[in-house]
Amino acid sequence: MTIATTATDLLRRHPSVLIGAAILCAIMVITAFAPWIATHDPMAIDPMVRLRGFSASHWLGTDALGRDVWSRAVYGGRVSLAVGLAVALFATSIGLAVGLVSGFNRVADAILMRVMDGLMAIPAILLAIALMAVARASVTTVIFAITVVEVPRVARLVRSVVLSIREQAYVEAATVVGSRFWRMLWRHVLPNTLAPVTVQATYICAAAILIESLLSFLGAGTPPEVPSWGNIMAEGRTYFQISPWLILAPGLFLATTVLAVNLMGDGLRDMLDPSIARRM
């Protein structure tokens, strides 16, 4: 059986991965082509047409500064997806590194895990807000703040996988026989950790997109001039009775994305060994 047929077979048995990926791709295409799909400059303010309803020139109306809601929602995906994907990437790679080091080195483990425990003990949002206060509000700062919050969770997961693999007989045997450390890492540890970490990455991606919106809600998110689904909703929340589309348009985009990412995650998890799924 070739790799290709294995893959198609797996996908047939776990269609949610496929469906999730398809939806996500569609949304990425929409945001990638935002300049052509949007009807207005998403940042252009027009104080004289504030909070208008649907019209031919503003499909989903305008917000409190007279900006076009449709255009902002379309462009908003760029920031939201960037935050989600970047945090997923950085958090998993840093978490993987930290987890591997502490899985193999006792001294480093003692220090790193205390730091990780400490970071985990501070509620995620509050830690992120405090971090946002340190540097200038920008998309990069948001990514940094949420990454710091998510790293410990990945590190813990990786560490537990490493520890359980090290205990397994074949790895011990391999070590005793004297095969080199890097070989063991490459052959046994990485393949076994990458799978759960990938699944974790999808959940982190979804969580990051949501945390970004909560940060905006609390007044410490991405700069409000730059649209993201989160801050469009946060800025528009006051108007939920007057212009519900201010919340609903980005909200539906965001919900679809989070749903798609979660579908992918759940599907991936089901494809993997249940013992790994158990740690999710």
Binding site: P47, L65, A137, G219, P224, E225
Partner: peptide
Amino acid sequence: DPTDNAVLHPAALV
């Protein structure tokens, strides 16, 4: 731009 201020934040954007 003070983003947590309901009056001054929109004014900063204008």
